[in-house]
Design a protein around this nucleic acid. Structure first.
Length: 738
DNA sequence: GAGCACTGC
């Protein structure tokens, strides 16, 4: 067995920082009198934070895939192409000077041979080290085949590929390209491909040995998304596998934090390489007393920092939209009344549910007499980087969706963050100059925080991951080489669900049905619905509905004063929906949207019935993709060509019942419902068209627990259908070991 | 009579 050697590449110069480096812990209080002295010096490399990043290194933070863009053809295209080529090459040459300044560039000649020489390497690169852009390029020159670099997010993959193509000196999609859902910029020439980890997993479902690639670089592994965890497990399997074992296949795991030992241990003590980052020191300050009202504490802290600290914007972390809206409106009210010596506070909310135009406001400049205060959820921890931040105020809280296997429902909880997350939030203040992080909790509370955020796979439903493993013929799911084993309960629940969806046989092997399901870009339950719908000859309307269900913010919650009006409008527009429920409503809404001619007309209609215009645009994209995939899935029955033209509500709902038999409940005399599986009480969510109706039985797509157990996306069903659609499902258990 | 953090195919 190899030695677990950790090699550190140090830089001689440059600012240092990060948690525990050059920093001292201090206490502060909410009333403004900081325990520390005020510092007046501008930090190392104190560039104007309002200036855009150097040499066009503009950080595009939001995905703006606009379909309306159209590029016209030019007449003297050839001439243009030649000048473009020269421009690209010149750009690359100027960028090279910047690249040479990156910490990773300086250790290139020592690092690259080491990576090449071992089958698996772990690279720890701190923020600003340049690992994600540089290491893949270095490796490109040293290895023959194609390299896949996986990212957890679409925007990340696209931005990195765009940047690297510039540095390399090619048009995006030639030697350097990317592949994400709905957007592919690769060609036969592509040797370096940035992609989402979901994309690589998809490729693995079609080509389990990844024969196209001679190297896979897993970036941001420390984020521990379900898909990254799955990929690491599969890559380990691949590298132990004979075919790849003898070849030149290489794996690089890149991570930002120091939890590299886990990855190293997982890959049989793979060597770890450490590359220093380019972070400025950030001072951390704690409260002496804990607070009980987090929004009140946040407002006080913001006002205190605004009055006591030098120029620079403030980034505040709060758990959710609710708190953010509260603090924002309070600050808007208070700001004009505050002392005029201090900058004027410009509060800006930032969370995923916010319309993109409002999100973009955090990037707009403000006057020198003003100070941006960004009130954000966890979105600023990883997905959005706002420039100009010098101060962070951290509530120490976040919201997390937790799946309860035993109950088959999810809950949304507000919980304390981990130390790793606290450090990540703190680092947001030290990207451009030294900064400060004010923590709205005591140091003794910090010490009690868990080291790392619990990996997502431990708190999620894992039906889809288990189906992937079955597709790759993993026999013993419980004993598979999980980076984190989700546990017997979660696994057996997943196996049981797959069995009842006919994705697994009673010996636990994947069925033809399962093979069809695994390639569809929807949850296994919805995949089962699609396949059933084709047998019932109602595929088209079901694809429309499934596409609608795949967009999470399609049907909006109306403001209180428009509630009744909007509900009435929806009811009027959806005759079938009013009778059969929300799935048919989605179909009817979709048809109306699709029937409208122009964008303006569609937009105003969306506003009228309280649905998202952008959401419906996404529905159309997903619908097109599903239609394409369904054409490639063999149809055993080979149905007659003529499709049902009328909307057969009962056949549509029976198709859905195929995937959601376990999500059914029987009506009780008191208008409540008892679930068929556990007998627990479940209520129809007030957003449903069927809210308040008395029905024999219901089927729902989602079961959430907030104030109480709610069924969402509810349909009215007949009890006979249960027997007809799934006569065998009740009371069956699958052995986990099988 | 509700309110949802974030991401992916």
């Amino acid at each position: 067995m190899k030695q677990n050697k950790k090699i550190r590449f140090d830089e001689d110069e440059g600012p240092k920082g990060g948690e525990g480096v050059n920093t001292k812990n201090k206490e502060w209080d909410l009333d403004g009198s900081h325990a520390n002295k005020r510092s007046s010096e501008m930090g190392v490399g104190g560039s104007d934070p309002k200036q855009p990043r150097r040499n066009g290194r503009k950080i595009v933070n939001f995905d703006s895939d606009d379909e309306d863009e159209d590029e016209g053809e030019d007449e003297d295209q050839q001439h243009n192409r030649r000048t473009d080529y020269l421009k690209i090459k010149m750009k690359a040459r100027t960028l090279l000077e910047d690249r040479k300044k990156l910490p990773v560039y300086k250790v290139k000649d020592r690092l690259v041979p080491k990576i090449i020489s071992s089958r698996v390497s772990i690279v720890i690169g701190e923020t600003g080290s340049g690992k994600s852009t540089q290491i893949p390029q270095f490796l490109m020159k040293r290895c023959k085949g194609a390299i896949a670099v996986t990212e957890p997010r679409r925007v990340g993959a696209i931005n990195l590929a765009t940047r690297v193509a510039e540095e390399y000196g090619c048009i995006i999609g030639r030697e350097v390209g990317y592949s994400v859902r709905f957007s592919n910029a690769t060609s036969r020439k592509t040797r370096l491909k940035y992609m989402t980890d979901g994309m690589l997993l998809r490729e693995m479902m079609l080509d389990p040995t990844l024969s196209k690639y001679s190297m896979v670089v897993v970036d941001e592994a420390h984020e521990r998304t379900i898909l990254t965890d799955m990929m690491l497990g599969l890559l380990k399997q691949l590298v132990t596998d004979k075919r790849k074992h003898d070849s030149e296949f290489r794996i690089v795991v890149m991570s930002a934090t120091l939890d590299a030992d886990k990855f190293s241990h997982f890959f049989d003590n793979a060597p770890i390489y450490f590359i220093e980052g380019r972070m400025f020191p950030v001072e951390r300050l704690y409260l002496q007393q804990s607070v009980d009202d987090i929004t009140d504490a946040m407002v006080k802290a913001i006002i205190g920092v605004n009055q006591g600290e030098r120029a620079g914007d403030i980034l505040c972390f709060l758990p959710g939209q609710d708190d953010i809206d509260k603090v924002t409106s309070l600050l808007k009210r208070l700001a004009p009344e505050l002392p005029k010596e201090a900058p004027l506070i410009i509060p800006l909310p930032l969370y995923a549910a916010l319309p993109p135009a409002q999100q973009m406001k955090v990037f707009e400049r403000v006057k020198p007499s003003q100070r941006k205060v960004i009130l954000s959820t966890n979105i600023s921890e990883t997905s959005v980087t706002v420039p100009g931040i010098r101060f962070v105020i951290d509530s120490g809280l976040r919201k997390v969706k937790v799946w309860r296997h035993e109950l088959g429902l999810s809950t949304l909880l507000t919980v304390p963050i981990s130390k790793a997350s606290a450090s990540q939030r703190t680092g947001r203040a030290g990207r451009e100059a030294p900064g400060k992080c004010f923590r709205l909790y005591k140091e003794s509370d910090y010490i009690k925080l868990i080291e790392n955020t619990e990996p997502e796979i431990l708190r999620s439903e894992i039906v889809s991951p288990v189906l992937m493993l079955k597709r790759l013929n993993v026999e013993n799911i419980l004993g598979w080489n999980w980076l984190e084993n989700p546990g017997r309960e979660a696994l057996s629940s997943a196996l049981q669900q797959l069995y009842s969806l006919n994705a697994l046989s009673d010996t636990g092997k994947i069925t033809d049905m399962g093979r069809k399901m695994v390639v569809l870009p929807v949850a296994p339950h919805l995949a089962a619905v699609l396949i059933q719908a084709r047998e019932y000859d109602v595929l088209d309307p079901v694809i429309d509905i499934v596409s609608c269900l795949s967009v999470d913010t399609l049907v909006l919650t109306p403001a209180n004063d428009r509630r009744d009006e909007i509900n009435a409008k929806r009811r009027d527009a959806c005759t079938l929906g009013s009778h059969y429920g929300d799935l048919l409503m989605l179909k009817e809404l979709f048809d109306i949207y699709n029937g409208l001619s122009g964008a303006a007309e569609r937009k105003s209609w969306c506003k009228d019935v309280g649905v998202s215009y952008k959401g419906f645009k996404n529905v159309l994209r997903i619908r097109k993709q599903i239609q394409g995939y369904m054409q490639h899935i063999p149809d055993d029955l080979a149905n007659s060509e003529d499709q049902n033209q009328t909307l057969d509500a009962s056949l549509i709902l029976k198709s859905f019942l195929k995937g959601f038999v376990t999500n059914t409940a029987i009506g009780m005399p008191d208008r409540s419902y008892r679930t068929v599986t556990t007998g627990d009480t479940v209520s129809v969510h007030p957003s449903s068209l069927l809210f308040g109706k008395k029905l024999d039985a219901i089927m729902y797509i989602e079961h959430v627990y907030t104030a109480k157990g709610y069924a969402r996306n509810v349909s009215s069903i007949e009890l006979d259908w249960l027997q007809e659609v799934a006569p065998h499902y009740l009371g069956l258990r699958v052995n986990v070991e099988s």
